[in-house]
């Protein structure tokens, strides 16, 4: 097991890009390699040691034996764990844009908030965010019709606009509330939102499942009631309480299901 600890010592308002510092690439690096390494900032590269104190313990045969600890505020460090396939990354602070984007395996835990595009086009592994996420968590690249296709994202705070657009697999759990258009264009997968949702979840969904345990602000006309179920089992999970099941979105001949907590959404009954 190899533990790599990076402790920030200097702040750069121009974001650092960490797409080259993933377990897949650094598992066999020793301290000299890190000291030699220059991190991309804007159109230049600067020594990583200008910005971080580096500590390495143990050794690793492969990326799965690597644990990277980013011990501090990473609010200006983009692409943390981007395209990683194995290993663990722990961020003890906020994470900037694109944390866990296109990851295929391994795990990332952020002990803070994450900026937009967390878990974009994720294909596997797990991403856990203890705080809030901003817009476009688990979404597709602009123009791509396939978003997150596998893996798990857990958000313990709130999620921003257009959570998981074009989702085509995997699972997303949000404990807090969620802004507009969660699961827009989704074709497969599972989204569970614990808190309240402002407007229009699952617009233009073709398939997949969205569960809302809180109060929904506004529902789209493209959804039709299929029935009311008590303690339903959805996606292999047993939910407690009464749920209204909707089918939609009719506009795209969708067969997706949207489940709303009946107690919290009495106005829709």
């Amino acid at each position: 097991m190899k533990t790599i600890t990076l402790t920030p010592k200097k702040f750069s308002s121009i974001a650092l890009e960490f797409d080259e510092l993933i377990p897949d690439k650094v598992y066999d690096w020793n301290k000299e390699d890190f000291e030699k390494y220059e991190v991309p900032i804007g159109n230049s590269r600067f020594p990583l040691t200008d910005y971080f104190d580096i500590e390495i313990e143990g050794s690793a045969e492969g990326p799965e034996e690597v644990k990277m600890i980013l011990d501090g505020d990473m609010g200006r460090v983009k692409y943390i764990g981007c395209k990683m396939s194995a290993g663990d990354i722990l961020v003890n602070g906020d994470a900037d844009l694109q944390v866990g984007a296109e990851m295929t395996g391994g795990s990332i835990k952020v002990n803070g908030n994450a900026e937009s595009y967390a878990g974009r086009e994720m294909k596997g592994g797990s991403l856990e965010i203890m705080g809030n996420v901003r817009e476009y968590c688990g979404t597709s690249y602009i123009g791509e019709w396939r978003g997150m296709s596998d893996g798990i994202i857990k958000v313990h705070g709130n999620a921003g606009k257009q959570l998981a657009d074009c989702m085509s697999g995997g699972e997303i759990y949000v404990d807090g509330g969620c802004d507009i258009l969660a699961g827009i264009h989704m074709t497969k997968g599972y989204i569970e939102i614990g808190g309240d949702v402002t407007r229009w979840p699952a617009g233009q969904m073709k398939n997949g499942t969205v569960v809302i345990k809180g109060k929904l602000g506004r529902l789209l006309e493209g959804f039709e009631v299929e029935g009311i179920y008590k303690n339903p089992e959805i996606h292999g999970k047993q939910l407690t309480g009464k749920y209204i099941k909707y089918k939609g979105d009719i506009g795209v001949n969708g067969k997706g299901s949207l489940w709303l907590n009946a107690e919290k959404n009495r106005d829709l009954l």
């Binding site: 258009l181 407007r199 229009w200 617009g203 233009q204 506004r218 789209l220 006309e221 493209g222 979105d249 009719i250 506009g251």
Partner: peptide, 8 residues
């Protein structure tokens, strides 16, 4: 969005 969704 809601208006156009209803037309569709």
């Amino acid at each position: 969005y809601e208006f156009v969704n209803a037309i569709r």
